Simulated assay, not measured.
Amino acid sequence: MRAAIVTAPDTTEIQEVPTPSVGSNDVLVRIRACGICGTDTLYIAIGGLPPRHGCMPIGHEPAGEVVEVGRDVSGIAVGDRVVVNPMALADDIIGNGGSAGALADFLLIKDAVRGRSLEVVPHHIPYEVAALNEPMAVALHAVNQVAPRQSDQVLVLGAGPIGLGITIALKSRGVGHVVVADILPSRLEKALKVGADAVINSREDDVTARLIELHGPGESMWPNRSGTDVFLDAAGVPAAVETALAAAKRGATLGVVAVHKEPVSMDFMNIMSNELTIIGSMGYPSEIFEVTKDIVDNWEKYQAIISHTFDLDDLQGALQCVATPGAADKVVITLS
């Protein structure tokens, strides 16, 4: 079978590798779609992770069709359409330094348990949409971390795939007013399409002033604060954090889910005097299949997040698309 393997820094190859054998507790999935994540590009840049540096399989956002089921596995049948938890086995994480990646024709789910390592989705859900399950679990965990109330007013900074997923999750749980800020008009259009109540072009507009128009003024010992209750950083640039903290009223919350590649300075007098809460978000401790129902119920909204699909044989074109700033939202590899 074919599999995408990181063979050296900045080098990924499609190689022929043995198709896995299925044990009594395992399930074999024919991969039909797999998203490309920013961490995939990081692994490629550094040549993979130990102990598989230089020979690391990648891909951890899969959806596929069950083609073989071990005799001791229950609740899963051949022909089922499934999404996968790549972190089900802590010592063998799929596509993140483990022995297998999901950018391949087949993926072996070891010690398969429905609801823990994989879950069934209806056949009418397109495979490429089902492949959003893992990154959308990341987005849902970010929302769960800040625990918004329905009465809250929220600003999402960044309208990439995670920011759009956060927007859908916020509206699915009934949050009253969600604003999305980004510098790309095309992404702001998508934010409105998936349910944002308003958008701000942060390249052209004064974000704080616009927030005050939308959310009213906020209580603070400092002037020019907005009534925004929750800020979610899905941008990963210092300006996003700086913008949120400059606009935050007393008691506001800032959630950080984006990966920051450089340190961000903060005015701790502002944080202290306004009693701000800053909370991080990483992965999906419990959300990997919690998000699945919402994807099934609202799959057409989630489909808008996908901007490009590529065949596995055109992996290099897909990676170039991902690496080009502003060129793509979510890129998904499809396999026939």
Rank of each mutant, 00 (worst) to 15 (best):
V180Q: 00
D10M: 13
I168M: 07
L192M: 14
G54P: 04
S74G: 13
F106T: 11
I212W: 05
K171W: 12
L170K: 00
L211V: 08
T19C: 10
G79N: 09
D329Q: 12
V199A: 00
V67N: 08
E16P: 06
A247D: 10
A88L: 06
Q15M: 15
P86H: 08
G283F: 06
I5D: 02
E300R: 13
A198H: 10
P9Q: 11
D233S: 04
G195I: 05
D233Y: 07
D229N: 13
T228N: 04
E68Q: 15
D314T: 12
E275A: 13
T292M: 04
R149V: 08
P263T: 11
L335H: 11
T324G: 09
P62Q: 03
L155M: 10
H124R: 14
I168S: 04
A3M: 07
V264K: 00
I162G: 00
I46F: 08
I166H: 03
T334Q: 07
E213P: 03
Q15F: 09
A142Y: 04
L254N: 03
R32P: 08
A169T: 10
R2W: 13
R81G: 01
T253C: 10
G35N: 06
D105C: 02
S286A: 15
A323V: 01
L315R: 01
G59I: 02
I58A: 02
P18C: 10
K301E: 13
A8W: 09
D182P: 02
V138G: 06
I162K: 00
G251A: 06
F310Y: 15
L42Q: 13
L49S: 12
V29Y: 00
L245N: 08
P9W: 12
A137E: 07
E219T: 14
G283T: 08
C321P: 10
